[in-house]
């Protein structure tokens, strides 16, 4: 494994995060959500939709500072974010979208390599409006990789991809994480994704979200379809609310 000495990168305690809706109605999205991320770990947020997973991820990304609580970084992170929606610039080509977010050290050769692995080579001069949702998601993932982050935040990145593509991209994310000193956080409601990628799976309560249990995934858990399925049933029997979709 890649862990040389376990250091914590981040400690978070969100006491309260409330949204004020346009109609004046308040929604409490997070309540006493606590977590610690260790350097170079892979953490998964698992929970039913609407429980505040994206909200917590946005707080980690530094995109939302309107909350009660504390966020302590060991050092400021360099965030690479894959949003729940692709969020590509429709008026820029695939190539421009990727390069605009790329790290200064990201070379033309890195680019060709990246689009090759992502299966986007044919698409580089297309505009996002010409791509399917699945392809757009791949561009969004490529964009996050190109930014050479040390904190990779993925918000349900594989939703609406066909199964083989999703499997390939999961493998890519895993390779990227194994090969580089990256701390990763991924939101999902798919236990297979969670077990295949995560080291630690944080189980959320329903809204207002907090983290009420954690699963540690051992490398051996990932090895077979049967163990993944076993993990799934185990979690499902303990926390049926996580699976209502």
């Amino acid at each position: 494994m890649q862990h040389v000495g376990v250091q914590s990168l981040l400690k978070v305690h969100i006491k309260n995060k409330t949204y004020l809706g346009a109609n004046g109605v308040e929604t409490q999205a997070l309540k006493d959500a606590e977590l610690t991320l260790t350097e170079n770990s892979f953490t998964v947020f698992f929970g039913p939709s609407g429980c505040g997973k994206s909200t917590l991820l946005r707080i980690l990304a530094g995109l939302d500072s309107d909350y009660e609580g504390e966020v302590h970084w060991a050092h400021p992170p360099k965030v690479g974010m894959v949003f729940q929606e692709p969020r590509l610039l429709p008026w820029r080509t695939v190539k421009e979208n990727i390069l605009l977010s790329a790290d200064p050290t990201f070379s033309e050769q890195d680019f060709s390599q990246l689009v090759e692995v992502m299966g986007l080579t044919e698409m580089v001069s297309h505009f996002p409006g010409e791509l399917s949702l699945g392809l757009s998601r791949r561009v969004a993932i490529a964009r996050a990789f190109a930014s050479k982050p040390n904190l990779l935040l993925l918000d349900e990145p594989f939703v609406s991809l066909d199964a083989p593509t999703a499997a390939r991209l999961r493998q890519l994310v895993r390779t990227l994480w194994v090969d580089n000193p990256i701390t990763a956080v991924m939101v999902t409601h798919d236990m297979r994704e969670a077990v295949e990628l995560g080291e630690e799976v944080l189980l959320f309560t329903a809204r207002p979200g907090s983290i009420h249990d954690r699963l540690t995934i051992l490398p051996t858990d990932r090895t077979s379809e049967a163990t993944i399925e076993a993990k799934r049933s185990e979690v499902k029997s303990l926390y049926p609310h996580l699976f209502e979709t």
């Binding site: 990304a61 690479g80 974010m81 949003f83 969020r87 605009l100 930014s147």
Partner: peptide, 12 residues
């Protein structure tokens, strides 16, 4: 607003 947030997160 979402695109602006995207730009912010990638340090535009």
């Amino acid at each position: 607003y979402e695109l602006e947030e995207m730009g912010q997160s990638f340090r535009y």
